[in-house]
Amino acid sequence: MQIQQLSVFVENKPGRLAEITEVLAAANIDIRAISVADTSDFGILRVIVDKPKEAIETLKEHGMTVSLTNVIAVGVSDHPGEFSRAVRLLADTGFDMEYMYAFISRDKGRAYVIIRTNNGQKAAETLQENGFDILSPETIYNM
């Protein structure tokens, strides 16, 4: 139940981020979720797209350093404490979260959180067993 995310190395220079997303747009690839983490010199762009394989090809053709990673996408309903319950559950069952980011869904009252942990497959199962909605790759890619 894991989905594929692209990580792209980005130098901190004006317009670089725009160039990368333009490369994706030109290949007719839709971005589902995006997150940028950066230091003063460089950043890592993390994106979930509808066609990850094609996206990685295109970016590589443009000379970029890209990798594919498995992450999990959790649907969280919009009431207080729901998200912290998920995080607590992962922590208590021994998963280390490397990073996470959220995006809002078109469905009212729901948000999605992308989580990267060690042992992602097991983490997804644990969340699912505890009543959380884990999104399938198809759901995300066809969103």
Partner: peptide, 15 residues
Amino acid sequence: ELIDASLLESFGELE
């Protein structure tokens, strides 16, 4: 130049 994409998993590795 960074050439190994496997480092992109974490900032820690790059740093």
